[in-house]
Design a protein around this nucleic acid. Structure first.
Lengths: 199, 199
DNA sequence: TATCCACGAACATACGTTCGTTCAATATAT
DNA sequence: ATATATTGAACGAACGTATGTTCGTGGATA
């Protein structure tokens, strides 16, 4: 990628802008209530030009669905730097909860789930990312067990999945209520997770 | 309601048929990818006639969203008949899991959630029903605690919400994989719930 | 000069909804 | 009991608009 090329640079910037406004529009109105005209207008470009950057609407949706994932790679690095598995788990929960309760993300997450349930192309990217997230969490659980910080009563993968369920469930409920998590809710979440891992 | 009236009877039957095909269509294609023509064709009636039964598409969606609730009233009765709170809880989990993992329901549930997040009319009915479900579960938890079958480490409402999260989370994952729950998955779910209630 | 971003008009289709009409079931009058 | 009026389910054409996508053109960059 030659960033000294003025054309290419402004083109990638445009594309970035388009993706960002698409995320906004999609999370506000949903995939299928957002028209290509909406997107173009909101991004301040013409309809025809939008098609210069994205060949079709589904292509755009697909890109958003895979992009709107927690940035797993960075998360992995951050957690590797944690001193103890306990701290790693705490960090994981904090970060993922933060990501899920972001107002845009919660709506988009629901949108992606319901879309992914019937659209294989969407499902693929979403599942890949989710498995990556799971495997990180599983690793942490194994570390925890080795350090006697946890005594699992079920397969680590099931436990990890349940932890994600708790976080995502809380996020969804908060989005429904239009609120951010209170201290109490955070506390209950942590208690629930501690119970699940037998800490 | 005069069921000896032939006209009224066939009308309510029609309406029932329409609601059922709407559920099918909506769960297959989603609210916004299903057109009124789709519905009419699928139900074997004309487009115009569809509007004789439902004034608008949103009215139809609203009806489905509130209807597609677990029949809480019956559930309540069934659970009251349970000998012990332990049995009541087991039944609750079994029934709700069954309801959530029904292929149609899982897709429709996701659809309602994502629609409810931005459409207050949908949200209302959904939340009302969910609160009813929660209050049943909370009651069971209190009974359990009184019978020394549980030692909650968090407010009963939070615990109940987390239990629902586990069930719904598992259901969603199963729907994504296109599978029904295995014995192992059911077992892990039960272990998770037992841990949450400190049993 | 060749490339490609940017534009907005144009196209075909799909959508939600309305409309006038038919026709059988019901209510009322004879 | 028979004739007449009223109702409302059922139909499909029609309307207006919105949609995804294509196309030809202009203008800046390489």
């Amino acid at each position: 990628m030659n960033t000294s090329n003025k054309r290419e640079r402004s083109t990638t910037e445009r594309r970035q802008l388009l993706v960002e406004t698409a995320i906004k529009c999609f999370s506000e109105k949903g995939f299928h209530q957002t028209s290509m005209r909406d997107l173009a207008t909101r991004a301040g470009i013409s309809l025809g030009n939008l098609y210069n950057h994205f060949g079709s609407k589904t292509e755009l949706i697909k890109e958003i669905a895979t992009l709107e994932a927690v940035e797993v790679r960075q998360l992995q690095i951050l957690l590797n730097a944690s001193r103890t598995p306990q701290k790693a788990l705490d960090r994981f929960v904090l970060i993922y909860l933060e990501a899920c309760t972001d107002p845009d993300s919660a709506l988009l997450f629901a949108e992606i789930v319901s879309e992914g349930l019937r659209n294989p192309e969407i499902r693929g990217g979403f599942q890949r990312n989710r498995e990556a997230l799971l495997s990180i969490l599983i690793q942490i659980l194994h570390d925890l067990e080795a350090a006697k910080g946890a005594t699992l009563r079920m397969p680590a993968e099931d436990c990890a999945a349940q932890i994600l369920d708790l976080i995502e469930g809380l996020s969804t409920r908060l989005a429904f209520a239009g609120k951010l998590p209170t201290k109490k809710e955070r506390a209950s979440l942590n208690v629930g997770i501690d119970l699940l891992i037998g800490r």
